[in-house]
Design a protein around this nucleic acid. Sequence first.
RNA 1: GCGCCCUUAGCUCAGUUGGAUAGAGCAACAGCCUUCUAAGCUGUGGGUCGGUGGUUCGAAUCCACCAGGGCGCGCCA
Length: 619
Amino acid sequence: MRQYPLSYGRHPHMTQAATNNRDTMTHDLFAQMREQVLIALRTLVPDLPDEVAARVEVTPTRDPAHGDMATNAAMVAAKLARQPPAKLATGLVAYLGEAPDVAEAAAAGPGFVNLRLDPAAYRALIPTILRTGEHYGDSTIGTGVRVNVEYVSANPTGPMHIGHCRGAVVGDALANLLAKAGFEVTKEYYINDAGNQVTALAWAAYWRYLQAIGTPLTEEEFSNEVPGGLQYRGEYLIPVGNALAAEHGRSLANDDLGIAAPDLWIDRVRNVTIDTMMREIHVDLAQLGVQQQVFSSERALVASGAADATIDRLAADGLIYEGVLEPPKGKAPDDWEPRPQTLFRSTQFGDDVDRPLRKSDGSNTYFANDISYHADKIDRGFDILIDVLGADHGGYVARMRAAVKALSGGRTKFEAVLCQIVHIMRGGVPVRMSKRAGSYVTLSDLLDEVGKDAVRFTMLTRNADAQMEFDLDKVLATTRENPVFYVQYAHARIRSVLRAAAEILPPEAMTDAVLAGADLGSLQADAELALMRRLAAWPRTAEGAALAREPHRIAFFLYDLASDFHMLWNRGKDDAALRFLQKDRPVETLARLALIAATAVTIRSGLAVMGVTPVEEMR
RNA sequence: GCGCCCUUAGCUCAGUUGGAUAGAGCAACAGCCUUCUAAGCUGUGGGUCGGUGGUUCGAAUCCACCAGGGCGCGCCA
């Protein structure tokens, strides 16, 4: 279901990689080794079908005793070769033992081939990383595929709050991640500025306007006059009311102090209020480091006639009818009565029931307009549409997928990333969402206390689909328990060492370009090799995260990388000869500096995806 | 009632898309600070991967059923 045809195992260009210079093709040691394995396998099994070759994997070993990498090639091809896996594995070992970069190959277990790499292969990665910079980990798996990532899309009915935050961070990081994997990505925000909610917003703003011009009405008296009652009672609309009063005086109230006919003011008030709210949302997003390229307005979509046009288009395809839905079983709806509705045949495309497109007043449902919006995205030529939604929209996914399928003839793929709820905690106690000062309602307040980087990193320390607790005390803790700190601290430590190095080595030797030319032969310690192994895993980690649409994997990788680095750093605590800086041994010092500089580059590469700024020092 | 998501160490969570003896942090226990940042490090103990069946060389991962939790289920967005 979630398969996407561009996993690198099946990538048509990859089969030629082994004949090309590795630097021009991929920086992924695992992908390089996979080519060696395929060459060996094809020698043993000459007519190897592509479907079988595609299943061949080269993965990191879980246990270092098994070497650096393992391949399942023998097990995958055993049936076709009509040989037991263990025998085929033995054959592979004979070839792979002679392959470049391989120090040792061994058959193991049910037919694995374990590979121990020549440490030189890992050392060779360091100059590659230093020369590639933050682009290390980029790949081409998404080349030529256009993706639209829509996220946040909060109603412009008030300031952004915590609930919007996770989607904003996940969507933004996912878009960055896909771009790193070579996809052509557009970041987008859909403004839900049509419908009942913005009308209710206009009424609420109008109440603040009446207050500004000195109305004698009480809030309850006013609320009784509002269709559906007064809804958005937050104080954030007071400035809007004041601004309306300053600009229009009493004219929006017909020079009275009571409620004038809505026709007199509602369009004006609605427009002004939405514009004000969107400006505030832009400020909040900027503060969070989110910068979307396209903002699409539902209101504009309706006004332009595009929404109706899309419905007509579906109608022309025979996908719309007037019908009566069955009541949902077991839900016991009090006021259920069968009535005819304008329905979209989403069941033809995998949905459970057909979905209504028009309200009884003749206006479009939210779904109808959203279909049209997605039609617009399809028309703009995207291959994949990804909506980042709150988990409460889970029931919405099937119908939207059906609509995209219907509108694109199956050519455009629709995906949804659902974000579960975030519980804000302080010291283990839930923080109530209250209007009173002191507890958090708005995103802006959260950012003021915790900061953009801690918010973004922490939001990515859980799978989006799992509920999370966001403890305000823990995200600021300077302990290993706090991954934000632990990763930032690793980077700061590396920068600190490089600054200290300038005192025993010429400063011009400290650049990544010069370090890339260092003699690395002295890098042999287990902890050094462990760190290099981790660095080598970055490309496949980034690629896997992109294909799975799971940006949280980046946070976990960085945590592990930081852990490897801190471990190495601490060797120098026990034994001074293992410190990075060795006064009288410039060759070894430069080699170690190159290693940790490459580590810093990789950390920055990962933080860039997460939208987190690396720190130079922590004091 | 139906659909989707979830259930992994005492706690919070990973688990590289089906791979070998399931990992990390916290908590517990035992050690380690004249130092490139101890804001940390090393070691030990801790598991019926909710349960039961199935698929195959191989299952925490895929399928079926069951138990528990969350979300949703005709003109809210």
